[in-house]
């Protein structure tokens, strides 16, 4: 966000892009998941975003992913787009994508490769102009991180640290 006194309003259009609004309205992979092997819950205490993410990992591949819950347009679209981006990928690929996405959103100067690595998800870069909303965009990714880490009922909260965690 620009300085509060600045006369240059930041562009809402970069936050509420068509794709984001579309995924907010019609979230993909929304609902329960058969044969889930891991799950995690994500909460944003600030505004009450709350999601339940379920994964199915088979032979090192994320063969299924789904989420349920409610929250703002940014968090819901981010969850929806994430599921479409990671489904069918190997756990290693997913982990790399997750690291790149968190790097892109959380670092002032992201690593060179992060932008290219996230592909179409780079549309969330606009969220960086709205610092309080970065938590919304990253919430589901942090839930994914917890689920991959393997806790059967992992929970993440936006209040419990923001930095990308090195993957194991």
């Amino acid at each position: 966000m620009s300085h509060p006194e600045s006369s240059q309003p930041v562009k809402l259009g970069e936050l509420y892009q068509e794709v984001i609004l579309d995924h907010n309205k019609k979230p993909r992979n929304y609902g329960p998941l058969d044969g889930a092997t891991a799950e995690a819950r994500g909460h944003n205490r600030l505004c009450g975003d709350s999601y339940h993410l379920r994964l199915r990992v088979q032979d090192g591949v994320l063969s299924g992913i789904a989420f349920e819950g409610q929250g703002c347009a940014i968090s819901k679209a981010s969850a929806s787009l994430m599921t479409t981006a990671v489904e069918g990928k190997s756990v290693e690929e997913v982990t790399r994508l997750k690291d790149a996405f968190l790097d892109l959103l959380l670092r002032e100067k992201p690593a060179d490769g992060s932008r290219a690595a996230v592909g179409r998800l780079k549309l969330f870069e606009g969220v960086k102009q709205f610092p309080v909303r970065v938590k919304c965009a990253t919430l589901i990714w942090r839930a994914l991180e917890e689920a991959l880490r393997g806790g059967p009922s992992a929970e993440v909260s936006t209040e419990s640290g923001q930095g990308p965690t090195p993957s194991s």
Partner: peptide, 29 residues
């Protein structure tokens, strides 16, 4: 169909300061 957090962000761009959230009163929400 519109989450209060999104309402608050857009109002903020208009110079309007409101509260969006559970107001520390989750039971009444």
């Amino acid at each position: 169909g519109i989450h209060p957090h999104d309402v608050g962000t857009i109002l903020n761009e208009e110079g309007i300061a409101v509260r969006a959230g559970n107001h520390c009163a989750q039971p009444v929400m």
